[in-house]
């Protein structure tokens, strides 16, 4: 078992003919993912890295049985790409695209949910389950099959942390980069139950950032409903209020979204909170060890 992706995952890449789309199609295939189709309107009939390209998601799904979409379409077209996948019956949309207006998410998210499609992202590195499938852009080298789950609002920071778990001799069950935007399709609270019920996950690493209250909400869930050990880290402790730190979501406004409040909430929920990213692997080792006892 793994979370959201497995050996039955059949990926279609929206925006496959762009630079990013092509580069990551190669990477996903090298990971062992079944990339079965690409979609770029107007380029139907061509082939990219051995993957047939279609004009529409509907065609791609009908011909290839794709059930998961990885979206690289530039921001102005991202909403349309998601809606197209939702209407074609795709179950999971991983939106890698950054700078998608949150107003577009306010439309996409409820629509997708009403049709039973899950969105991950936007502005996210995607999801990977070593030995099974990867949808998105997390580097292949950081993965190693194992029993630690990872959910994160960051991108490259996630790679570091996932890599750290590998280097200390453990591996991952599933890693999900949720994205750093103000409105995302899958939050910590949405993802936690999936890891709770995943028999292949023994411990969970939660990587948060300043801004919003997603980590506080997660802490509330962890406290009452999550039984596995949680190791957490919050980036941005030294960020000043009112300054947007790269991500549209990472900003302390109106006294809300501070690292202190998130760390306190997670600690109160029983999570081991790392002060720095390099402290995480050791905490994971300890958590796994004490859980086995």
């Amino acid at each position: 078992m793994s979370v959201l992706v497995d050996r039955d995952t059949r990926v279609l890449v929206q925006g496959i003919t762009g630079h990013q789309g092509t580069v990551h199609t190669i990477q996903m295939k090298q990971f062992g993912t079944a990339v079965v189709a690409g979609v770029t309107p107007g380029k139907g009939g061509s082939v990219v890295e051995g993957v047939p390209v279609f004009d529409s998601v509907r065609d791609a799904v009908a011909k290839t049985g794709a059930n998961t979409s990885c979206i690289f379409v530039p921001a102005p077209g991202a909403k349309d790409a998601v809606l197209e996948s939702v209407d074609a019956g795709v179950r999971l949309c991983v939106v890698v695209t950054e700078h998608v207006p949150f107003h577009d998410m306010l439309v996409m998210y409820p629509y997708a949910r009403s049709k039973g499609t899950r969105i991950i992202g936007p502005n996210c590195p995607g999801i990977g389950a070593p030995g099974k499938a990867k949808v998105g852009i997390i580097p292949n080298v950081v993965f190693r099959p194992g029993r630690v789950g990872v959910i994160s609002r960051s991108g490259t920071l996630t790679y570091e942390i996932v890599n750290g778990i590998k280097e200390i001799g453990l591996g991952q069950s599933t890693c999900i980069g949720l994205g750093g935007d103000p409105v995302i399709g899958t939050t910590f609270v949405d993802a936690l139950p999936m890891f709770e019920s995943d028999p292949d996950t023994d411990a969970l690493v939660l990587v948060g950032e300043i801004g919003g209250t997603a980590e506080e909400d997660a802490a509330e869930y962890v406290r009452h409903q999550f039984t596995k050990p949680v190791i957490a880290y919050i980036a941005g402790r030294s960020a000043p209020p009112g300054k947007r730190m790269g991500h549209a979501g990472a900003i302390i406004t109106r006294g809300k979204g501070t690292a202190e409040s998130k760390v306190a909430a997670l600690e109160a929920a029983g999570a081991r909170v790392a002060r720095f990213p390099y402290d995480i692997p050791q905490l994971v080792v300890e958590a796994v060890r004490s859980a086995r006892r």
């Binding site: 950032e209 980036a235 730190m245 990472a250």
Partner: peptide
């Protein structure tokens, strides 16, 4: 590279 990593770097420097 990446907002999260950049923020984490600031935190470490400050430490």
């Amino acid at each position: 590279n990446g907002a999260g990593l950049t923020m984490a770097t600031l935190d470490v420097l400050k430490e």
